[in-house]
Design a protein around this nucleic acid. Structure first.
Lengths: 180, 180, 180, 180
DNA sequence: ACTCCCGGGACAACCCGTTAGT
DNA sequence: ACTAACGGGTTGTCCCGGGAGT
């Protein structure tokens, strides 16, 4: 049972970004990494942007799935989605969204892709702002969570397990604490 | 009083990023925007990376200066630097750090530039973590602040004045509030 | 019967060198001379050095073939390879090794290409030094032969048929004459 | 007593070629090596070709001087100049003509420089062909001598002292031996 | 005599996507 | 479904030389 070719290509694209950064994400490279010709790649994705779009969608869907799972396990008190969001973000697991930052930057210049990102952003924003927690507080929590892996990606912040857990727990606490 | 040519070039580079994104930051474009030949540009900055490095340095220095100013005006209670950092970030005026995200992504692939960024990061991190506020809390505050303008840059979050102020004030409050 | 594209490109490269010297050997020129786009050229030769390498290999192989042919026709007395070498060099027809000097100079700066040349050199050197002729004498003969077309290439020495034949015959004689 | 600036520049040019090959011979590099600005360099040599010309002249004059010295010490029998030429070439000393090959290649494309080289060539050719030795033999001797250092320059032939002396002596012998 | 600044042009390498063909 | 060939365009880097100024 062969793996779906499309998935193989997406996987290859991920690898390229991980290993060579956004600059390494060229059709030629991806094709080569998937042991296929560029023509073959373009047969599955009409253009580079189409490839990136598929990549983005996959990452978003993954995160959505992961967060939803945590949501189920979370108590019904206010801040339920926020906590799910925080937990999903701080999971150390596979972390398939490994790249977002670099991807983002490349997304910026394509209106269609930007719309996609913005839409996902708003989708979450709406959920998190109507979660029973004062909006500024909710925003801050989301932002801190987002920044957390942004920084991890750039490799700017050392990733110490204890520190990470402390931050995560502080964020979780902030979803419940009385508001200053 | 002629403006220094180097500064004119730096300024032009900023403009290019602002208007066309990172992709627009080409030597040709910058030179043209500064009404100079590419040869002239390369006389001042030996390579594109040299240009970007100068850009980064300038942005960092600007922010440093701005934050320091707020630091002076801030009370001596714990969290003094954090509050200065938050205020400097949420200022709407100058906003010279316009771009970071896109710049970051391009920086990622050059070790020297990365070192520069990491160094600046650690410089601030040390200051903010030893500011009399519990470290996880301090980190969260910095992260939320950073994310704030990141998002503004991507243009993903609408920038409503009242919302912004609310968030800023919440962050300032968090520098003082009892710790959960 | 379409000529192989690769060969057409190689041929075009030769022409450029012949007509404009090493400086004329630019990707643009070669592509243009072969009536092809630079993109197309780079599809066949990944880099300029790759093109030069192919060129060198072809010239070496040509010479090898030509010399081998003379070798077959040569008597078995000592100096058989030397005589073949001399004859192959002084042939006026094909002269495909047209350029060596200029090529050499450009080769000098690339380690890989240098290795290629050196290898070919040693290959011949071994053959010619173990050909039944005292080694210093053998070396001199090879050197004179090499210099012959080097000079012709630079265009420094007028190419008079009688003179050429006289030199060739003297060299052939030196492969047999009693040794001083 | 400061060394003449012109000479310092010429020396620097030599160094550049020796260390970085012909490609390294740029006005910028030479100027930097001589701790001077490019403008300064161009003040002494109107153009790059002018610099190369001066270089060539110096090398030729050096060789001329060296050969003449040997000529004085040589017996008056036929082949006197040839022997001087051979001795001058095989001297292991300073060898300031260290480069000729690469220089030649760069010279090829400038008619004026070519004329200079050709003139020097003919000057020697005349001397050597009217030296009491049969012309083909004389030519061969010169060619072998020329090739000797050509090969040393390209670094293609290992430079073993005994082998070198053997070749030199064989060449000297050829200037006197009965003709095959 | 020498420096700084700059223009103008070239060149190698890369990259995306189309097309003919299998 | 997939490959090979190719075109057209862009970008970073380099390099030579001229001109203003000291």
């Amino acid at each position: 049972m062969t793996v779906d070719t499309r998935d193989r290509l997406l996987e290859a694209a991920l690898v390229m970004i991980r290993e060579q950064g956004i600059t390494g994400l060229t059709l030629d490279n991806v094709a080569k990494a998937a042991r296929m010709s560029k023509g073959g790649l373009l047969h599955h994705f009409r253009s580079k942007d189409a490839l990136v779009e598929a990549l983005l969608r996959q990452l978003m869907d993954d995160f959505e799935a992961r967060a939803s799972q945590f949501y189920q396990q979370e108590s019904e008190r206010p801040g339920r989605w926020l906590r799910a969001y925080v937990r999903a973000t701080f999971e150390d697991e596979p972390l398939p969204l490994e790249l977002s930052l670099s991807l983002m930057a490349s997304v910026t210049e394509n209106a269609v892709l930007m719309a996609l990102v913005r839409q996902d952003f708003e989708h979450w924003q709406e959920r998190l702002l109507n979660d029973g927690v004062p909006r500024p507080r909710a925003t801050i929590i989301r932002q801190a969570a987002d920044a957390y892996w942004s920084e991890r990606l750039i490799g700017v912040a050392p990733d110490e397990p204890e520190a990470r857990l402390a931050i995560r727990d502080e964020l979780l606490a902030l979803t419940e604490a009385g508001h200053a």
